[in-house]
Design a protein around this nucleic acid. Structure first.
Length: 967
RNA sequence: GCGGGAGUAACCAAGCGGUCAACGGUGAACGACUCAAGAUCGUUUCGCGAAGGCGUUCAUGGGUUCGAAUCCCUUCUCCCGCACCA
């Protein structure tokens, strides 16, 4: 063992050693297996601090389980399908300045190599080597024989099998899908292509088709149920309206909409054609038919109607919509003869259709009146609308007027009603952006209905219910994420699963399309098992037939038939099959929390769809992100810290320990230079401790005679072993490092300070094993220096041994430490230089009061202080102290009632005299405070000039310090 | 808007009904060692205190409780996701 800790030398040595000895190459055996996977990285850049956190968590769990005796498989592959790598190749080919800068300086790619990364293939080739190199440099215990890349022809065979089988189960369907669209670029827009409107979403409206003669007046609404309460419709006299021809599913209709609405409709799944302009004025005052009630209603003018929203025509529900009520009220006294309206609008009856506890019959009217809103241009009308809508949505029940829907809650009716409206041709669906979106090219975006897309049918209720079932049986770490997963399963809708651009596998049902890249990474954990055989050349591309995968993954068919069909030797086939049976299912999939609503969800969906329940995954874990000095990382724009550069600068062990100690579980971690620097010092301390212990040559053991401090150390280390194991089991890496490192190192310091040395070797022996999952290289080095031949990576992890827990020893140390702290506090406060310290143990009467109290409370569970005092006074020996007893009882009463009695019981059980304890420790106290210490009993103090002994209490000696003033 | 989460001492960050003036780590100050520096070790780091104590704290304002950083409600602030993108 070298005198100075040189991380890189040690790390290279052990990495070579591990590779050579193949100790992380996992093969089935008689031991229990543990199959842990982490999502493989997407290779459009080097691995960074975020990967470092997630993958290191995986490695720590893998190493911990391995040391607990499990047969652990921790494999890794590379994800390259999809568009970003293609995009990156284009950017590099065109020498985009920002890209060149970020990839050269932050990803650390040498300029001459960077210039060659002009094709996706070169990029994949380069980064997969870099990624493997980085993961080897940081010491992950990965079985590298199983690596693969998602563009491997063999992998594509696997994915095709997956999609053929999904299609057979009718989980892949063809349909239309609304997309944010730039009409100028004629392309979908993603958030990074947008000038403004990033937050915009696509909102599904229902168009209610009011009719007038042969014309349709569509009104867009989010609340189709309110159609039952429509009293009129609104048109804005200052807006341009058009008559258009609309064709959908072969049916032709003529609609009246605003000019803006016409433009939007051209992008929907309808054929539309301009016929003529219609003067707005001619639309006011006409009588239309409500398509679901058959009521005849009038059209009225309103200024709040905006041509760009919906169709530019609005249906009016004055009982429930404040704007409608206001607009109607504004017209009560207006002269509408111009429009040919002669009716008295006050005659229009408000129609109430929702019952809601907070309001009476006409919520809109009530709120407008109570808020004192004056007109439709009042700014508070928006607020009133929100309030009414929210109340009605959450607590509203439909009234009788809604016919067969009466009694339904408003929050549940929308989908049902919409479906009914569509089937009766009273309504249609219409998608609109929640806020204006402008493309980078300056063009306002629209919603475009893309036709004939391939979808994964995630909204299938049966499929979902299987996922719920799977979730309910799974362990979710941390448990609070379970709700999140359940919500997301609920929220997931059908998802387009094919694309035209990028790298990937062709969709078997339609070779025009490529399988979308989130869909080709859902069950690949099973492929790791096959990959080993492909890597060693036991399987050729042609042999990977559908029946091969059926046989291996689903257990369908039989060996002889598959062997005959594929030409794979029967023995090999059997081996692959039994490997799969042994390793599957996945025992733990651990990932960053960003993958919860996508990858992890799909991982579950595809598993439950294809595999039998016995092969459904067992556990999911999620962890937080990593930021750099408070800044969010970005692969394409920086800042970024690569795994390799962190390891190069600080070493693997230090990087590993730092990234896992700085934040817990789903908390985000912030990478600070000062933080990792201090970790370096900490690891260094551990190294020198180990070195000192080894060099001293002393190997005391726990079977030799133990002193108080030894028993204390023994007990403490057991506590940390216990907590570390528990923490690692629930992937609380910070908690695990706190216990196995920081708290333990502090105790070791105290142990040595108190003169402990007998157990130093024992401590090291446990400690080094405890830390191996986190900092494996340095631990191997120390383990070897301790004289062991076998790698520590395969040695038994320390297990909790309750027999070594010694509450008494811990209590005694606590008394000493507290006494020392008290003495030091007095010295500090009085600013004196101590000449002599006198300690007084408690008088016998206080001890007997406490004993009596404990005895009584054990009998009765509750003690009333006054009664207790009376029973004490009966005893003549105690009666002598009658004056002091009430005060003392009061004190212990409050203390004990909040659970403070335990310490006394423990001490009592020791059969130890406090005098002896203090006398034993006196010499220690003397060295720390640099003056003599004398122990007295408060019962008969030889020296007590200031009567301090009266403060003595059991487990808390009184203190009197003689000192001189500081000059 | 919807859904999830967070606000703790100089900073990072645990705690999530009594053991809490609140783990641990940074940073800072002082002391020990040293010719000195670094490393290391010790002490302190909310306020007051020449006796181990007292007082005021865990975003905010209320409430529940014998007892709240911890439970419930109000308000404020911040972060994340909302999709066809990995």
């Amino acid at each position: 063992m070298e005198h100075d800790y040189k991380p890189h030398e040690i790390e290279q040595k052990w990495q070579k050693n591990w590779t050579k000895s193949r100790i992380f190459q996992a093969e089935p055996n008689e031991r229990q297996k543990f199959f842990i996977t982490i999502p493989y990285p997407y290779l459009n850049g080097n691995l960074h601090a975020g990967h470092t956190r997630t993958f290191t968590i995986g490695d720590v769990v893998a190493r911990h389980k391995r040391m607990l005796g499990y047969n652990v498989l921790y494999p890794m592959g590379f994800h390259v399908t999809g568009t970003p790598i293609v995009g990156l190749a284009e950017l590099i080919a065109s020498r985009d300045p920002q890209t060149m800068d970020v990839y050269e300086h932050l990803h650390g790619i040498p300029k001459d190599i960077l210039l060659t990364l002009e094709t996706p293939e070169n990029i994949v080739d380069y980064f997969k080597h870099e990624a493997e190199k980085a993961m080897r440099m940081i010491g992950y215990s990965i079985d590298w024989r199983r690596k693969f890349t998602t563009t491997d022809p063999t992998y594509k065979k696997f994915i095709q099998w997956q999609y053929i089988r999904l299609a057979e189960k009718n989980l892949i369907v063809k349909g239309s899908h609304p997309l944010k669209w730039c009409p100028n670029d004629n392309n979908p827009v993603e958030d990074h292509d947008i000038l403004h409107g990033e937050g915009a979403t696509i909102v599904e409206y229902t168009l209610i088709k009011f009719r007038y003669k042969d014309l349709v007046f569509p009104c867009a609404t989010l609340r189709p149920e309110t159609t039952y309460g429509v009293t009129n419709i609104w048109v804005n006299p200052n807006v341009d309206y058009l008559k258009i021809r609309v064709e959908k599913n072969g049916c032709e209709e003529f609609w009246v909409v605003s000019r803006e609405a016409f433009r939007k409709l051209t992008f929907t799944d309808r054929k539309v054609e301009y016929i003529e302009d219609i003067p707005a004025k001619s639309l006011v005052g006409i009588k239309l038919t409500n398509p679901i009630t058959g009521d005849i209603i009038i059209s009225l003018p309103a200024s709040f109607v905006r041509p760009e929203n919906g169709s530019g025509i609005v249906m009016s529900v004055p009982a429930h919509a404040p704007f409608d009520y206001l607009a109607l009220r504004d017209l009560y006294d207006a002269d509408l003869h111009d429009y040919g309206i002669t009716e008295d609008l006050k005659e229009i009856k408000l129609l109430s259709l929702i019952k809601v506890p907070e309001f009476g019959e006409f919520p809109a009217k009530e709120i407008v009146e109570s808020m004192g809103i004056t007109s439709q241009s009042d700014k508070r009308a928006d607020e009133a609308t929100k309030i009414v809508y929210r109340r009605e949505f959450h607590g509203g029940i439909l009234k009788k007027i809604t016919g067969k829907y009466a009694g339904c809650s408003v929050s549940k009716i929308k989908d049902i009603l919409t479906r009914d409206l569509i089937s009766s041709d009273a309504g249609e669906l219409f998608y609109e952006l929640s806020e204006p979106v402008v493309c980078r090219c300056g063009t306002p975006c629209v919603v475009n209905m893309v036709k004939s897309q391939w979808f994964l049918n995630y909204s299938d209720p049966e499929w979902k219910s299987k996922v719920y079932k799977c979730l309910s049986k799974m362990r979710i770490i941390p448990e609070d994420y379970r709700v999140e997963f359940e919500n997301k399963v609920d929220w997931l809708k059908d998802k387009a699963c094919a694309r035209k651009k990028g790298l990937g596998t062709r969709l078997p049902l339609d070779k025009e399309w490529l399988i979308e890249s989130l869909g080709d990474s859902t069950i690949y954990m099973s492929y790791y098992i096959i990959a080993k055989f492909i890597e060693k050349g036991a399987l050729s591309l042609e042999q990977l037939t559908l029946s091969f995968f059926d046989y291996i993954l689903l257990g369908k068919g039989n060996n002889a038939a598959v062997s005959a069909e594929t030409g794979i030797e029967s023995v090999i086939l059997e081996e692959i099959c039994s490997d799969f049976t042994y390793w599957y299912p996945v025992d733990l999939r651990s990932s960053g929390k960003d993958l919860v609503p996508n990858h992890l969800l799909f991982f579950l969906f595809h598993h439950v769809a294809l595999f039998g329940e016995e092969n459904w995954p067992k556990a999911l874990a999620v962890n937080g992100f990593v930021s750099l000095e408070g800044q969010k990382m970005s692969k394409s724009k920086g800042p970024i810290l690569t795994m390799e550069s962190a390891v190069r600068d600080y070493g693997a062990d230090i990087t590993r320990m730092y990234i896992l100690s700085t934040a817990e579980q789903t908390q985000d971690a912030d990478w600070h230079k000062t933080g990792i620097e201090s970790t370096r010092k900490q690891v260094d301390k551990f190294y020198s401790f180990a070195e000192d212990v080894i060099e001293s040559g002393k190997r005391g053991s726990i079977s030799s005679e133990l002193k108080q401090i030894d028993r204390w150390m023994l007990s403490r280390i057991q506590g940390y072993i216990h907590k570390t194991n528990i923490a690692l089991d629930s992937i609380q890496t910070r908690e695990a490092i706190q216990n196995s490192f920081f708290l333990l190192i502090n105790d070791v310091k105290w142990y040595q300070r108190r003169g402990g040395e007998n157990l130093l070797y024992y401590v090291l022996d446990n400690w080094v094993r405890l830390l191996t999952p986190f900092i494996p290289h340095i631990c191997e080095e120390i383990w070897e220096a301790m004289g062991h031949k076998d790698p520590i990576s395969l040695v038994q992890f320390p297990l909790y041994n309750e027999d070594l827990i010694n509450d008494g020893a811990e209590l005694c140390e606590e008394i000493i430490k507290d006494t020392l702290d008290d003495i030091e506090e007095i010295i500090r406060v009085t600013k004196m230089i101590p000449q002599k310290v006198h300690l007084y143990t408690a008088p016998a009467w206080k001890v007997s009061v406490i004993k009596k109290y404990i005895c009584d409370i054990n009998l009765k569970a509750y003690i009333e202080a006054g009664t207790f005092i009376k029973t004490l006074m009966v005893n003549p020996e105690l009666r002598v102290f009658g004056k002091e007893i009430p005060k003392f009882v009061q004190k212990i009463d409050t203390e004990f009632k909040s659970g403070g009695a335990e310490r006394y019981e423990i001490f009592d059980g020791l059969g130890l005299d406090e005098q002896d304890l203090l006398k034993e420790s006196a010499s220690f106290l003397e060295t720390v405070i640099c003056c003599p210490v004398e122990i007295h009993s408060a019962d008969s103090p030889a020296y007590d000039p200031e009567k301090k002994s009266r403060f003595a209490e059991p487990l808390r000696p009184a203190i009197y310090i003689e000192g001189r003033n500081r000059e």
